[in-house]
Amino acid sequence: MIWNLGSINIDNFYEVPHLPAAGETLAARSFGFGLGGKGANMSVAAARAAARVAHIGAVGPDGRWTRDRLLEYGVDTPHIAEVQTPTGHANIVVDAAGENSIVLFQGANVKLTEAIIGQALTEASPRDYVLMQNETNGQEYCAATAQSLGLRVVYAAAPFDADAIARLLGRIDFLVLNEVEAAQLEAATGKTLDALGVEDVVVTLGAKGCKWVSNTGEKAFDAYPADAVDTTGAGDTFTGYLVAGLDRGMTTENAIDLALKAGALMVTRRGTADVIPDLKEIQDRFGI
């Protein structure tokens, strides 16, 4: 079982000819909206990877439909609270090459209470997984509670904040971050990834794949070829599938391989949570 303390956003998408420069006004070629937020994306990905996942989060009255959408996608939703703060949202511009720029409003995502988090985790069992990102409050309390209950803590270090990671070191079992974030973390701590005291670290490298750093050494994984049209949500899809694979008892190598396949398929689609591929799509695409 996966318990995901995660953000829930309403994503607004704008397709533009290129990413805007400072002071530039661009006419969007198209507009759309849907379910998003790193937390929601990862919950949907894990559920579509055949894991059972419960989302711990908050929405405002304007975001009730996002909770319904998560339930529709197979995510357990009893621990999503409704608060009197607007639901988080993200304005996402995507250029012709599939690259994106995002402006984020945190909203209800930072109005979680220890009571909400603690009540959810009372239902957890030892060896369950707790997944977190840096888009909600309550991370330290959640990690400490999870550790005391014998749960494994996975932290996806985005949006990156070295201080946030530093406060969690000693409580993280599995750390996921991208290449830029990894370099920033090493610079901020003065330590290499294998000296952080984290059992497993996965660094995503975009089109170059990823690397896994553990107490047994470092291993590189190549990415699967893909004609990318939108990279939004690809990292979240990777992480959700990775944790789902681990929760289902896969080896770390096999879970990473599955996550890379999911990410490769995700970048061929426009959107976020609503277009994350399910396990059968990946099996059909890659013949597994």
Rank of each mutant, 00 (worst) to 15 (best):
H79G: 03
I80D: 02
I80K: 01
I80E: 01
A81H: 03
A81F: 03
E82A: 01
V83K: 02
P86L: 03
A90D: 05
N91T: 07
I92S: 04
I92W: 00
I92R: 01
V93H: 00
V93K: 01
D95M: 00
D95R: 01
G98H: 05
E99N: 01
N100D: 01
S101Y: 09
I102K: 03
I102Y: 12
I102S: 11
I102T: 02
V103H: 12
V103N: 05
L104M: 07
L104I: 09
L104F: 04
F105K: 02
Q106H: 04
Q106Y: 04
N109I: 03
N109T: 01
L112C: 02
L112F: 04
L112V: 03
T113I: 04
T113P: 00
E114M: 05
E114N: 03
I116H: 00
I117T: 09
I117G: 01
G118W: 00
G118V: 04
Q119N: 06
L121Q: 13
T122N: 11
T122C: 13
A124P: 12
S125N: 13
P126E: 15
P126H: 10
R127C: 15
R127E: 15
R127N: 15
R127F: 15
D128M: 14
D128K: 13
Y129V: 12
V130L: 14
M132F: 09
Q133W: 10
N134F: 11
E135Q: 14
E135D: 14
T136F: 14
N137A: 03
G138I: 15
G138K: 06
G138M: 11
G138D: 07
G138F: 06
G138C: 10
Q139K: 10
Q139R: 13
E140N: 14
Y141Q: 07
Y141T: 05
C142F: 13
A143G: 07
A143H: 07
A144R: 14
A144P: 08
T145S: 09
L149C: 12
G150M: 09
R152G: 13
Y155G: 08
Y155K: 06
A156T: 14
A156L: 12
A157I: 13
P159F: 08
P159T: 06
P159S: 05
F160M: 15
D161N: 11
D163H: 08
D163V: 07
A164L: 02
A164W: 00
A164V: 09
I165Q: 11
I165S: 04
I165A: 09
A166E: 04
A166Y: 10
A166S: 03
R167W: 10
R167M: 09
R167N: 12
L168V: 04
G170V: 10
G170Q: 09
R171A: 14
F174H: 05
F174K: 08
F174A: 03
L175A: 14
L175F: 12
L175Q: 07
N178H: 11
E179G: 06
V180T: 15
E181K: 13
A182F: 12
A183I: 14
A183M: 02
E186T: 14
A187P: 08
